[in-house]
């Protein structure tokens, strides 16, 4: 068969079944958008991790007069202990930078952060611990620092800010997985709808397909127009879903980013990558649904 003839048959098929074509396009658009939102939330979680892990530190709090841990039994940290700790920290390969925060600096920072709160008036300089603020090359290497310094004389507590973020991120992971599951489920729905629509289309055009069989058309050439219709709907649906994701990105940039300044957001590149995956998904899913359906209903 020639391409022009196939295309004219595809056109006839799509027009004759216009409402169903419309339903398939919309369903594909929505399901791919949902899947795309799942993919983008994955990008978003990754972006947030990059953003936050870049900022978090390991804090090594040193013994002060109020410390109660066993390693502080010898009283507040001595000048030698402090120096040794600092030198050892700087020698650790996983450590990027070390910053020492004295009690008075800690006090200033505390006053700054809680300046509107009554608690700021009640805290004195000697109640706040001095600490080393350690930035790691790789924030997941916290265990190395902890095992080296936890329990060491003069060290009160080794605290990883990442532990606090982890809870937040595990929540985000659940949300992301949920979004992906919903996306995949709706893609499945779209596949079933495509399958059903093609079944109806095959039934509507049984006269044509019978004649094609009789004059000696191959299975492939009989199925091709249907396959292309499914593909056409998938690709138009994909186009709409990419539009929806771009819209989402625009809204995030224009409306949400100015309000939520504590993180970065997924980039346009993430949108295009997600869109490429959606195209692949749309084509593969519609192709599979079509081939399976047509093999069943359009036997030669």
């Amino acid at each position: 068969m020639r391409a022009g003839f196939v295309m004219s048959e595809v056109g006839i098929g799509l027009r004759r079944n216009l409402t169903m074509t419309f339903a398939v396009v919309i369903t594909v658009a929505i399901s791919l958008s949902l899947l795309g939102i799942g993919l983008l939330s994955n990008s978003q979680v990754r972006t947030m991790k990059d953003y936050w892990y870049d900022k978090i530190e390991v804090s090594i709090f040193l013994c002060g007069p109020l410390s109660e841990t066993p390693s502080c039994a010898g009283g507040p940290v001595t000048a030698e202990q402090r120096l040794e700790i600092q030198q050892d920290l700087q020698e650790l390969p996983v450590v990027q930078t070390v910053y020492y925060e004295s009690q008075s600096e800690a006090y200033q920072r505390f006053q700054e952060r809680f300046k509107d709160s009554a608690i700021a008036q009640n805290v004195t300089v000697d109640q706040l611990p001095e600490s080393f603020r350690v930035k790691l090359k790789d924030p997941t290497e916290f265990a190395v620092v902890e095992s080296a310094f936890s329990g060491r004389p003069g060290v009160d507590v080794v605290q990883d800010q990442r532990a606090i973020l982890e809870k937040f991120f595990s929540l985000l992971n659940v949300l992301r997985d949920g979004a992906l599951v919903i996306g995949l489920a709706s893609v499945l729905t779209a596949a079933l709808l495509i399958s059903n629509t093609l079944r109806i289309a095959a039934y509507n055009r049984r006269r044509e397909t019978t004649v094609m069989k009789l004059v000696g058309a191959s299975s492939f050439s009989i199925q091709l127009p249907f396959l292309l219709e499914g593909l056409f709907a998938a690709i138009v649906g994909w186009g709409i879903s990419t539009g929806i994701l771009s819209g989402l990105k625009y809204v995030v940039d224009e409306r949400i980013a100015p309000l939520l300044t504590f993180t970065n957001f997924f980039t346009w590149n993430d949108v295009w990558v997600a869109s490429a995956y959606l195209l692949l998904t749309g084509v593969v899913v519609s192709g599979f649904a079509s081939v399976l359906t047509l093999r069943k209903y359009l036997k030669v």
Partner: peptide, 8 residues
């Protein structure tokens, strides 16, 4: 013509 189209 349909028959001939189908046969290419």
């Amino acid at each position: 013509a349909f028959a001939l189209h189908v046969l290419g």
